[in-house]
């Protein structure tokens, strides 16, 4: 473990963080240990985000640092044949039909992934039938519906209804989020909850799956 790496990532010092990771690897550091450091840093950043002390740009840059350090680490893990992190639950996630907004969705998927969930990301403009298919195949505990527009209200409602019609509604908890969503829309769409940001999505999912 490198406290220095954790601090650099938390402090958004991208160049230094990546350089240090390179150096540590050259010196023979445990590749998976570096990923653990990144996860620890991301945990701190996530808490700060939830507390309103850091913001979306920090999440995006943190993702970018993780991607770069991940790329350094990956060949060494593959060479040593070590396994990946164990997942705590499965989530199907997507932006609903008619809506092509992906930035918020990508951040939520990223934070869910960092927090140990196995996320199937269906992308944007996802028809209800595709959610149904994915739930059948992937068997998630949670479904996340993202949407930015007021015109996403009905597609959200239709997606929840389609899951019900397919007999899958009781198998999953459904959360919604995005630009013009709120508790009114969650009630309208018959979802289980509205989450105001990425950390809310993480906490909702952990709560439902029973992870502390």
């Amino acid at each position: 473990m490198s406290k220095e790496l954790v601090d650099l990532v938390v402090d958004m010092r991208e160049e230094e963080a990546v350089k240090l990771a390179e150096k540590l690897l050259e010196e023979g550091a445990e590749p998976l240990g570096l990923l653990d450091d990144c996860r620890e840093a991301l945990g701190i950043i996530g808490d700060r985000f939830a507390a309103g002390e850091c913001f979306v740009p920090e999440l995006i840059l943190a993702g970018e640092m993780l991607r770069q350090i991940g790329a350094l680490v990956k060949p060494r893990i593959e060479a040593s044949g070590e396994g990946a992190q164990e997942k705590i639950g499965k989530i199907v996630f997507g932006t609903v039909e008619g809506d092509i907004h992906d930035i918020a969705k990508d951040i939520v998927v990223f934070m869910l992934d960092i927090n140990g969930f196995d996320v199937m990301d269906l992308g944007v403009d996802v028809p209800a039938a595709k959610f149904v298919e994915a739930v059948k195949e992937f068997k998630p505990q949670v479904v996340g519906l993202s949407g930015f527009l007021t015109l996403a209200y009905d597609p959200m409602k239709n997606t929840v209804q389609a899951l019900k019609d397919a007999g899958l509604r009781d198998d999953v908890k459904i959360m919604i989020g995005g630009g013009q969503m709120d508790d009114n829309v969650a009630a309208y769409a018959k979802a289980d909850a509205y989450g105001k940001d990425a950390m809310a999505a993480v906490n909702l999912s952990k709560g439902w799956i029973g992870v502390k």
């Binding site: 039909e97 092509i100 907004h101 015109l151």
Partner: peptide, 17 residues
């Protein structure tokens, strides 16, 4: 942008891409 019938469905508003 995508606009109705051109990148997004006909009954959706225009959206920034």
């Amino acid at each position: 942008y995508h606009w109705p019938g051109h990148g997004v469905p006909e009954n959706t508003s225009y959206q920034c891409a």
